[in-house]
Nucleic acid binder design. Structure first.
Length: 574
RNA sequence: GCGCGGGUAGUUUAGUGGCAGAAUCUCGGCCUUCCAAGCCGAUGACCCGGGUUCAAAUCCCGGCCCGCGCACCA
């Protein structure tokens, strides 16, 4: 406890404050008012501390409640950097906005997310493959993709109040049609000619300048122009023809890439939602557009209800068949929508009400996306539904563009006709999804902060803890640990009290703790503690591996072993 | 990029133009048979740069980072 001086309306007052844990956070709480004089305050503080020590001895365990959720985003950030989920890159140099490093726990989660993603999506069809390409691509690629033109925003700035905004939109508001198509020089001239002023303060406007969201790079000695790719998709389109041949000319062909993408955001914000360097997991499905309203596995999904938020409407559950008929969404599209929903609800165990597909209005979506739903999750930390993935029907826009610019015909001969395949893109922001998992599974109860991750996402699956560090319990615990660590993500910990070690594991979301106690030595068994309710079962060491595998796979906890009541906290003195 | 607010150990915070103090965390030792116990000890901080000054973490200026608002996010 310590004394705090506060200034209220110019006068100084002294208070006694106390550092208290709230979950994993330490906060300061006001305990008592101490008056206006420093010396008297110190004297009073001593008295109060004495008194409170006495009271504490009587009424322990009384506190601890009253845990407020508080600022969840701060909380997650603090756990993240303290425990090693993620932190800011180059912090010793002051850091840079929009760049994060995954620590050991975060990287484990990210790896797990990516493997679950692969397992789910690449197994949908035989002909879905993953490739690895490049992050640096030559300039013509982006001429073809439209990024050079469209990722470039014409901006103008008020010379007086420094208000910045897009020049093309400004001109359109002023009644100039199709301003988007004008060159920056023309826009500058127009603004001058028509004597347009800052919409905010009436000041003079600067000339129109391009702001490109892509990071330019020079390739080689001669400095040929290239860019860090702002999406992994382009590399898949570039690889299409070769992969089509290599996979023996079958459609649909899915080409997945999990890799970094780069966007030079003006102001990165909102944690993992506006990064300058980020990881995407994208699957580009090339298919015959004549077959867009069919899918061989349609029967499997047609009764599945999708959570759709259509333009101007609330979320409603519509089954695929209805969506096909009433909303005119093609079967091919709906099949993958259904599989995406399955990934979130059944693999990642996201609560249903936190998930939705949101239809984008024509204004919001890129012009070449004929059908565009975002996958959104409701996140407390970011105040509502946020985009974590997208399902875009891009038509033949991409292959057509690359055909034109490269001069190479990308048409294929398929089932007796010459076609340019269309593309359905499944695009996931991996970092955003990781943040979403942290947000959604974060929980604070009287036990403290914890992440209630499903076992498959948790950085560690199991922690092995000797109840105390003596009488051979530690030795047996280490034996158990070495027998499990090959097969599971295990963590061994023997420092501090057992309660504290449980709390540490809860905080990083470890779903199960194995405790070796006195009985274990005699009976060759251990307890398994479940994170979510602190319940324990007792199982034989010989059966441990199999039971753990079952538990991680969803085996019912109570059925896995005999539910046991372990002793209440008798080791506490006082 | 602009405006406002902020930046002292991992975290929560005192403090002063002159040796930066605590609580908690972490680590070591003692103790300890189930949910963040106790005792002893240790490690650990003034965001960066410049200016004013005998002396700056403190005052001034600039930068960086964070938060909020605006703008941006094909």
């Amino acid at each position: 406890m310590y004394i705090v001086k506060k200034k209220i309306k110019g006068k100084e007052y002294y208070y006694l404050n106390k550092s208290i844990r709230e979950g994993s956070k330490v906060i300061s709480k006001n305990v008592a008012y101490l008056g206006k004089d420093k010396k008297e305050a110190e004297k009073k503080a001593r008295e109060i501390i004495e008194k409170m020590k006495n009271e504490e001895k009587i009424g322990k365990n009384k506190e601890k409640q009253d845990v407020q959720v508080g600022e969840k985003i701060d909380e997650i950030n603090k756990i993240a950097s303290r425990r090693g989920f993620f932190f800011q890159t180059a912090e010793i140099y002051g850091g840079k906005a929009g760049f994060f490093t995954y620590g050991h726990l975060g990287k484990k989660m990210k790896n797990k997310f990516e493997s679950l993603w692969r397992k789910h999506f690449l197994k949908l069809e035989d002909n879905f493959v993953e490739i690895q390409s490049n992050n640096i691509l030559p300039e013509p690629v982006f001429k073809a993709s439209g990024h050079l033109e469209n990722f470039n925003d014409p901006m103008t700035e008020c010379k007086q109040c420094h208000f910045r905004f897009r020049a093309d939109q400004f001109l359109e508001d002023k009644g100039i049609e199709n301003a988007e198509a004008l060159s920056i020089e023309k826009m500058t001239i127009l603004i001058k000619e028509k004597n347009m002023k800052c919409p905010r303060c009436g000041g003079k406007l600067s000339e129109v300048k391009q702001f490109n969201m892509m990071f330019p790079v020079n390739i080689g000695f001669q400095g040929e122009k290239g860019y860090l790719s702002p999406e992994t998709a382009q590399a898949s389109y570039l690889a299409f023809k070769q992969e089509f041949e290599a996979t023996r000319r079958k459609l649909p062909l899915g080409i997945a890439i999990i890799d970094k993408a780069y966007r030079n955001e003006i102001s990165p914000r909102q944690m993992f939602f506006r990064l300058r360097e980020f990881t995407q997991a994208e699957l580009q499905i090339f298919f015959d557009s004549d077959k867009i309203n069919e899918h061989p596995k349609w029967q499997e999904v047609k009764k599945k209800k999708l959570r759709l938020k259509l333009i101007g409407k609330e979320v409603e559950e519509i089954n695929c068949e209805e969506a096909n008929i009433k909303l005119n969404l093609p079967k091919f599209y709906l099949y993958y929508a259904s599989k995406i929903q399955e990934f979130y609800l059944e693999v990642l165990k996201i609560p249903k009400e936190k998930f939705r597909f949101r239809e984008l209005s024509e204004k919001e979506r890129a012009f070449y996306n004929k059908i565009h739903f975002d996958i959104e999750l409701n996140l407390d930390t970011l105040g509502g539904f946020k985009e974590v993935a997208g399902l875009h029907y891009r038509t033949d826009h991409d292959l057509k563009g690359h055909s034109e610019i490269s001069g190479k015909n990308l048409e294929i001969f398929y089932e007796g006709k010459r076609i340019l395949p269309h593309v359905l893109e499944l695009s996931f922001g991996v970092d955003r999804n990781i943040w979403a998992l942290l947000d959604i599974f974060y929980d604070v109860g009287k036990e403290g902060s914890m992440f209630k991750f499903p076992p498959k996402i948790a950085p560690f699956e199991i922690a092995i803890l000797p109840l105390v560090n003596k009488a051979g319990m530690d030795k047996l615990a280490k034996e158990v640990y070495s027998s499990l660590k090959e097969d599971f993500d295990c963590f061994y910990d023997d420092s501090g009290s057992i309660g504290r070690r449980y709390a540490r594991q809860d905080e990083i979301g470890t779903p199960f703790c194995i405790t070796i106690d006195g009985e274990s030595l005699k009976k060759k068994d251990v307890t398994i503690r479940r994170r979510d309710d602190q319940k324990q079962i007792r199982v034989k060491i010989n059966d441990l591996k199999e039971i753990l595998k079952g538990l991680l796979d969803g085996l019912e906890f109570e059925k896995a072993g005999k539910l046991v009541e372990t002793g209440k906290n008798e080791l506490r003195r006082e």
